[in-house]
């Protein structure tokens, strides 16, 4: 099976988010970067499992600068066979999707994997754009994926349940929680990752279709009102009269 896994870099989940230049730019100083959890825990691991089951190749692809090689090596350590980095700042979903589609269009991938969204811009758009550009069937928010013959059998998360779907390869899928269990790379994997090929390619020219004008931080809460545990009626009163939520 010929599998492509697109991975993204995001700030660590514990990162405190701040902005610079009058709230127009994300301040990266002091931020630890990680592989986007939805890409790492679910989509990458499931691709590696399918390769282990059926044979084939897992290629990881990242659109980003050289600093991203760290997370790419981690993906190789988890079990991908080779990597491609498209050497560009990922400025928007449309930009990234265009680069991925350009790379993938003549490679005959059976399944192209994504995490359901990144935990920084929370877009969840890149995969739909790639599927459209390549005219491939697309299943978003999949919490389960099996392959039988040429058919993918998936669970797609819907409100209050799952939809069971089937689709012929090739297709594009995005993973939500449940598709696989996180894998911690072992020593052997880390050593092998150093020798696996990482190809760097130059981007095609693409114009962004959106622009972030500014950022804002949520308002701080004014402080918690503590309620005496012996008097929960007071909480009920406050929720009704003050907060007006019941």
């Amino acid at each position: 099976m010929n599998l492509l896994v697109c991975i993204s870099k995001t700030p660590d989940t514990t990162a405190r988010i701040t902005f610079k230049d009058d709230f127009t730019k994300f301040d990266e100083s002091g931020i630890q970067f990680i592989m986007n959890p939805f890409d790492e825990f679910y989509s990458l691991v499931r691709a590696v499992e399918l390769k282990e089951q059926f044979g084939g190749t897992v290629t990881v692809l990242n659109v980003g600068p050289a600093a991203n090689d760290i997370i790419i090596r981690k993906a190789l350590a988890i079990g991908a066979d080779k990597a491609v980095r498209i050497n560009a700042e990922p400025t928007s979903a449309y930009f990234v999707a265009s680069q991925i589609a350009e790379y993938a269009k003549d490679k005959n991938f059976d399944i192209i994997f994504f995490g359901k969204e990144t935990i920084d811009y929370n877009g969840g758009e890149v995969m739909g754009m790639v599927a459209e550009k390549l005219d491939l069937p697309f299943v978003h928010l999949a919490s389960h994926l099996d392959v039988e013959g040429k058919t993918g059998k998936l669970d797609r998360d819907i409100e209050g349940g799952v939809e069971k779907v089937e689709v012929e390869m090739p297709f594009v899928v995005s993973a939500s929680k449940g598709m696989a269990e996180q894998r911690i790379p072992n020593m052997r994997g880390i050593m092998m990752a150093k020798r696996k090929p990482l190809e760097v390619m130059e981007p095609i020219e693409v114009k962004d279709l959106v622009e972030i004008v500014k950022y804002e931080l949520p308002k701080e809460k004014s402080g918690v009102k503590l309620i005496d545990p012996e008097n929960v009626k007071e909480l009920v009163r406050l929720l009704h009269e003050e907060a007006k939520v019941i």
Binding site: P11, A15, I17, F19, I119, D120, Y121, N122, D208, L209, V210, E211, I212, V213, K214, Y215, E216, L217, P218
Partner: peptide, 13 residues
Amino acid sequence: VFSSKAFAYVKTL
């Protein structure tokens, strides 16, 4: 954005 740790104002072009 940043899983509701912040907000962004996005202009469509």
